[in-house]
């Protein structure tokens, strides 16, 4: 019955024995990246670059852990798909939610005035928009209308 595909045999997975030396090398890289991320934290890159650098290093560290410590580099395509699925669906969630938050005030907000001194900040001018608006927070130090995302400082 050799021609009958046996799903069990097809999906056969092996245990991968990786020499301990490789683990130590990966650990070394993780240490270096940790030091790098701490050093980079006190440096003003400008714009969103601080976040990009911090998350970039974190992603590199995470990839090292996933690929080597968790053996994904040596595993079946199915397992890689499962790993990817978790992150892809998280990405979808963030992407669409943020799409709402960044585009919410395109119609109603005049050009942003971040530089306006705190005490004299004028009440935000808003045109009426569709649907109910979230209640405005009461306070004197509104730097800008809430709901506006700060694109690069």
């Amino acid at each position: 019955m050799a021609h009958i595909t046996d799903p069990i045999q097809r999906d056969h997975e092996e245990h991968h024995v990786i020499p301990p030396r490789n683990y130590v090398i990966v650990f070394g890289l993780l240490v270096v990246l940790t030091i790098l991320t701490v050093l980079a934290a006190n440096f003003q890159f400008g714009g969103l670059l601080n976040e990009v650098v911090a998350l970039g290093i974190a992603t590199m560290k995470a990839s090292l852990v996933i690929l080597f410590f968790m053996h994904v580099r040596y595993s079946t395509p199915l397992l890689r798909l499962v790993v990817a699925a978790g992150f892809i669906f998280f990405g979808i969630m963030v992407l669409f939610t943020m799409a709402d938050f960044v585009s919410r005030d395109w119609r109603s907000t005049p050009p942003r005035q971040i530089v306006a001194p705190v005490e004299q900040a004028p009440p935000p001018v808003t045109e009426p928009t569709l649907g109910p608006q979230p209640t405005q927070a009461v306070g004197q130090d509104e730097v800008r209308p809430r709901g506006t995302v700060n694109p690069g400082r």
């Binding site: 669906f89 979808i92 969630m93 669409f96 799409a99 709402d100 938050f101 960044v102 585009s103 919410r104 005030d105 395109w106 119609r107 928009t129 569709l130 649907g131 109910p132 608006q133 979230p134």
Partner: peptide, 22 residues
Amino acid sequence: GFLVWGHHLFVAGQSVYSAMVF
């Protein structure tokens, strides 16, 4: 089904542009 949830938020105060996409 993971890409369409925003159609529950059409009158909730979601961004109009986001609503169009959803």
